[in-house]
Design a binder for these strands. Structure first.
Lengths: 306, 306
DNA sequence: TCACACCATGAAAGATATTTTCCTTTGGGG
DNA sequence: CCCCAAAGGAAAATATCTTTCATGGTGTGA
């Protein structure tokens, strides 16, 4: 009853059941060393940790009770007790469905069939994590803003630039006024045009890509509604974002760069945005969709073959 | 530490995870009235009870803490705390089992949370299908050709153009000579340059996109090794492809255009190609990967955190 | 290079929750 | 009508969790 003030911002998300593993990976980078140890223990062995008391977990990770509680808080739970319950739930879920060796890292000498299996598994995992961790309230707000927008600008560079293009293509197809920028100068130049009913969307996995943050900041300061799609919801980009959509981060390795899973995750978010907007603007979106389908038809050879 | 004697007989069964409901039914008859109330509450609403403390559950059932603990013991747990963990697990399992209509089509009036769930499910399904259907022999052959190539050209337009870009980015990052074309004229112009040790890759979902088939044909006729990534392995494009990599096609609908799942599928194939090539050229790929990572690092703000 | 400020961290005090103890109540036999 | 035994609950005792506070390390700016 005394936390009205200090927790007002943390109220964002009620605890997560299966999204925990995802949340851990998402937040680990922004954690301190001790908290990382706790988070890793928790993610690594949910069942084992659920059996431990705060003190036990603190000893196991070589930290203190306070740190354990802090970690639980950071992960979105009111305290350790609740984290523990979530852990028990996670353990029970893992119990039911598990797959053995596809979870291993991709090695240099893996046969090609293993590569396929592992990549597919990892990407499926990424999708599940993303869906579980996605804040539907934020998503809904972003959708509403986009659907009502006069104009939408999207910023993304590098791998995220492709995601930006994907979103661009989709939104254009349902008749919205959209632009995507990968050139930071042009992006800023255009951002100054944005006003109240406009939306700016920044896509950056790291959450700290200056080239993308800068135009978002400008848009933000000009009163546009700003959306960030990022793997680091606490990163610098969030500062200028009215709505933050968190993408999940899978473990990465030399042969599986972070870009791979972040892209999968970002694309899911983008798809959700698209479908959400299409729903809200169904009256105009539906005809636009079939029109663009028709338009493409004659670009294909008359008979698609056997 | 003092319970050696009195619990010696109760040690028979370690706590039950999902068998809880059954155990309750079995034992209810032998319970006293108050304990029955507790047991029924627990069996009736595991999730709800898991959220309660002993005191809370005692009040809810109109009994006392002692009775709650006694019930927990009777059910085979050391105490209420452990019963509560089991309850949380049970709740989580029930939760995961109850994804009723994720297999249904996306409707215009689906709440946003359903959209997320359905999209994620569909894309996971697409990945599984693709991985299962992918011909690893063809894939291996394509990988070998790319790894040995002097030069690689990629063709893709529209949504597939983004996939082409993705592959381009990845292969460039490990030091290959790659180009991607979405302009059909330029593509053909460049295709005539290709020779024996070169590789041309066409990406088209329909398998009948003229703008992409044409350059592939030219490359094929000039003796390059040609690869097609398509959802129609018997379509026109296959005609000029030495290796056909089949992407899967999920059912589509108005709100979920084919482009969405084909993209997911294509990207998985592209990732497999990339990892395969990276494995085969590990000596040069590994340093190139870390080099590009380093190069990017200073594009981000120094401290990403919080 | 030094001083400063800040933040992460753990020890221990403080607050809650759980378990145990023990006493009261209730409902049968004798 | 009395006594016993089992059931149930109040409250003490304990374990567990949470908060506070002091300390040490780290990085920054002069």
């Amino acid at each position: 009853m005394t936390d009205d003030v200090k927790e007002s911002f943390a109220r964002e998300a009620p605890p997560a059941p299966a999204a925990l593993a995802a949340k851990v990976r998402t937040l680990v980078p922004s954690m301190t060393r001790s908290m990382q140890r706790v988070a890793e223990a928790v993610a690594g062995d949910p069942a084992g940790c659920a059996a431990l008391t705060v003190t036990g977990l603190a000893e196991l990770t070589g930290t203190s009770e306070a740190t354990v509680v802090r970690t639980a808080r950071l992960l979105g739970y009111p305290g350790y007790r609740d984290l523990r319950l979530a852990l028990a739930g996670l353990a029970a879920q893992q119990q039911s469905g598990r797959s053995p060796s596809v979870t291993a890292d991709i090695a240099v000498d893996d046969p090609i069939a293993d590569v396929v299996a592992k990549l597919a598994y990892d990407e499926q995992q990424t999708l599940a994590d993303t869906a579980a961790a996605l804040d539907t309230v934020q998503l809904g707000a972003a959708v509403a803003a986009i659907a009502a927008a006069r104009r939408v600008d999207i910023y993304g560079v590098g791998a995220s630039g492709l995601v930006a293009q994907d979103l661009l293509q989709k939104l254009m197809r349902i008749g919205l006024m959209v632009h995507a920028h990968s050139d930071p100068h042009l992006a800023v130049t255009n951002a100054v045009q944005l006003r109240g009913k406009d939306v700016a969307i920044a896509i950056t996995h790291s959450g700290s890509t200056g080239d993308v943050i800068e135009p978002l900041r400008v848009a933000f300061e000009h009163g546009a509604t700003t959306v960030a799609i990022t793997g680091r919801p606490n990163g610098p980009v969030a500062q200028y974002a009215d709505h933050v959509l968190t993408t999940s981060t899978a473990r990465e390795s030399e042969l599986r760069p972070a870009a791979m899973s972040s892209r999968t995750s970002q694309l899911l978010v983008v798809d959700c945005l698209f479908v959400g907007v299409a729903q809200r603007t169904y009256e105009t979106a539906a005809p636009a969709l079939s029109a663009s389908y028709e338009a493409l038809a004659h670009r294909h050879s008359p008979r698609g073959g056997r």
